[in-house]
Amino acid sequence: MQRLFCLIALACLSVSPCALELATLEPARSPQAYQRLSEQVRQYDHQAMTAELESSGRTEPLPAPPTSKFGFDPDAPVDFFTTAEGQRIAKIVLSYQTPSGGWSKRTDMSVETRQPGQAYGVESHYIPTFDNGATTTQIWLLAKAHQATDEPAYADAVARAVRLITLAQYPGGGWPQNFPLTGGYHDYITYNDEVMGKLLKVLHAAARRQPPLDFLPEPLVTQARQSFDRGIQAVLDTQVIVDGTPTIWGAQHHPQTLAPLNARKFEPLALATAESAELVEFLMELDEPSTELKQAIVAAHNWFATNRIDDYTWEQTSRGHNELFKKDGAGPIWARFCEIGSNRPVFGDRDGSVHYDVSEISQERRDGYAWFTGKPKEVLKDYPAWSAKHLPRPDNTN
């Protein structure tokens, strides 16, 4: 009971009791230590919710409002948060931060402030998560809110979230989809939905104190720098090599062996073009890439250039179904997944079957998944300027 009173008192002061304990934790350096760390973080969140339920007299959390994204504009400018509406949104987002420092997905954070004893998200097994832009999106929003208002609570929330990212990093340098761990493919190192890329962008800005993350304390900046460097090494280590030649990345990789893996039944073991393209675009923004990183970018660019699909378009018909059409001058596009080794486009269905022709999978999956992408076009477009800046030119003076 004494612990309960302490938890309630801290909550009234807008200080997370679990945050105080989490501040003493360190990133894990072994798989066994990482599992223990994950369980500690899980227990912190669980204990805080238990205390809220007891203080509010409830036995089950109140449901959180659902939505397809987050309910707010993630690209709102800094000035928006000087307005009453902007401050209202920021306070709601702040209220949905878990004690461990993260946020959920598919939860509407524009309706009203979360109440004590209310769930942190609509998906009880995926809180907190980095999937679908969760946690990283809220970090950027609250950082802009702090930039606009200088409100300490926003700065503290961002710092706790960045701290969670550093704790969630595997000893091998990658990140799972959810942390604490939730099992299954969610525990794999995840490039899917740009998880790795979005986390690296946050850490890169934090490590350099770039606005709007220029307020972070020096110890956390150091942690972010170390975490970013380990993350970049994981990027190098997970680039798929075929017959001695680096290609691109899988959507998921094993957290220890780093081998590419399949995820859901309709997401086969394959090279993932959309996520790899987003990643390479970020890597090309780095000012001083190492020799190894430059080699990785060159290899990925060459793979994209070789495996483009021209004169085809993937679009919705008048009947509302997605189909691949022959169309002169269209493209380039890329299959979302390509078979490792042959580079042939592959398409999965809910029964776990894998096909080389998108028309062979069920209509539901054809219409419910992005099987083709144009994202690597940006890599091809930006590569010449990047290579002129970073790659040595042939010496033609002799």
Rank of each mutant, 00 (worst) to 15 (best):
G117M: 08
A205F: 00
A159S: 15
Q363V: 14
A205V: 03
A330D: 02
A224Q: 05
I297H: 01
T291I: 08
G173H: 09
M49E: 10
G374C: 02
Q223N: 01
D287T: 15
S342F: 10
P116Q: 06
S110N: 15
H125D: 14
E112C: 03
Q147M: 00
K375C: 02
F228W: 11
Y312K: 13
V111T: 07
R114A: 02
T166M: 03
T273C: 13
F372C: 07
L261R: 15
S362M: 07
Q363I: 10
I8W: 09
T222F: 11
C6G: 06
R29C: 11
M49Q: 15
T129S: 09
T245S: 09
E21N: 03
L167A: 04
G348W: 12
I89A: 02
V15W: 11
V15P: 01
P384F: 10
Q115L: 14
A259F: 08
S30R: 04
E54T: 05
R209L: 10
I241Q: 09
I361K: 00
T238H: 08
T137M: 09
T397D: 08
E378N: 15
I309F: 14
G133N: 12
E281A: 14
S124W: 08
K105N: 04
I333V: 13
C18R: 05
L261V: 07
G320I: 06
K381Q: 14
V78D: 01
Y312R: 11
L167T: 01
D311W: 07
A251S: 10
A84R: 14
G368E: 06
R209V: 10
I361F: 01
R365T: 12
M1S: 13
G174L: 00
H321D: 15
G231R: 05
D150M: 06
I92E: 00
R366A: 09
G183M: 08
T245N: 12
L293K: 06
T222H: 13
T59E: 12
F325R: 14
S359V: 09
G184P: 01
F179L: 10
L261E: 13
R209C: 12
L269V: 08
F304N: 00
S30Y: 08
V235G: 00
V93C: 02
E285D: 12
D108Q: 12
L213G: 01
R393E: 14
I361D: 00
D45V: 04
K265M: 12
Y34L: 08
C12D: 04
K105Y: 04
G197P: 00
A305G: 05
L181I: 04
Y34N: 02
L220I: 05
L4T: 05
T59R: 10
V78C: 00
L380V: 07
V78E: 01
H125I: 07
Q316W: 11
T24D: 05
A224K: 01
G197T: 15
K294W: 05
N132G: 03
V358F: 15
Y383H: 14
T136P: 06
A143S: 01
V379A: 08
N178F: 02
V162Q: 02
D357K: 03
